[in-house]
Design a protein around this nucleic acid. Structure first.
Length: 257
DNA sequence: ATGGTTGTTGGACAA
């Protein structure tokens, strides 16, 4: 079973590239973030023609998450418990192909001295609480998406540049590590514990891609039952170098049946 | 410090 996460930075602007990707890399399940449209504007016909069914939690202009699946996905929720009154579309969860999968897009949190930072931490805490509940079910679960957290210094080409940024803040990293400490596995690091240049985002600004000045902020977090089946995990870098690329690259994981 | 880019939109705002 192939499962991928990708922050596409607008599904409509990215549609040709996403269709190429679905055809070439052929994930069974794709978790998408920042689709930047309402459900009614989601290019459902084109996605279906590519062989996928879609569940969408959309929002006009900003945010928005989706789950694509070859097998019919069964919806579970489209908001995290405790975040029901939040208007921002940042979470969707379904059961598909024997897995529970969540697609999440966490707040950026900058600037750190604004209300955006505690808002980010609230989302992270809400996920941690929900994840603890999922863990008790002892089933394969993948919580994938743009966490907007650089877990460690090895996950940035220039860690010093991010020292005062919400993405590398002690608070956000503590939340991420707290999730790991409750029993969740970071799929990419599990398979590649010491690998450097393992990035998923390169800013459009300042030629970050050309200088490989990236950071790793998109993560596939696995329950023990999913981690036990993990065979490989990699960043699909090529898609960041394409014409009209997203500023993020997909992360792909392969699971044994 | 600032500016560099892309997307949604039709002027900022978010990232």
């Amino acid at each position: 079973m192939k499962l991928a996460t990708w922050n596409v930075n607008s599904i409509r602007a990215r549609l040709p590239l996403v269709l190429d990707w679905l055809k070439q890399d052929a994930p069974d399940i794709a978790l998408l973030q920042e689709i930047k449209c309402e459900e009614s504007a989601f290019p459902l016909m084109e996605i279906q023609a590519a062989g996928y069914q879609a569940l969408v939690r959309g929002q006009k202009s900003y945010n928005g998450v989706a789950i694509l699946s070859r097998e019919t996905p069964v919806p579970r929720r489209d908001v995290l418990p405790g975040m029901e009154t939040d208007p921002q579309a940042r979470y969707i969860e379904a059961e598909a192909g024997g897995y529970v999968v969540g697609s999440l897009y966490f707040p950026n949190g900058n600037p750190k001295d604004s209300e955006k930072f505690p808002y980010k931490l609230r989302w992270m805490k809400a996920l941690r609480d929900h994840a603890a509940m999922l863990l008790q079910q002892e089933i394969p679960v993948v919580l994938g998406g743009d966490y907007n957290v650089i877990p460690g210094g090895i996950d940035a080409a220039s860690p010093a540049r991010w020292k005062d940024d919400a993405l590398f803040s002690a608070e956000a990293r503590a939340e991420f590590h707290a999730l790991k400490n409750t029993g969740w596995y970071d799929a990419l690091r599990l398979m590649r514990p010491h690998e450097t240049h393992l990035y998923t985002f390169w800013d459009y600004l300042g030629g970050a891609w050309d200088r490989d000045d990236g950071i790793r902020i998109d993560h596939l977090m696995l329950s023990p039952e999913a981690a036990g089946r993990l065979q490989s995990c990699a960043v699909s870098r090529d898609w960041r170098g394409r014409e009209k690329a997203s500023d993020h690259a997909p992360v792909m994981a392969l699971f044994s049946p």
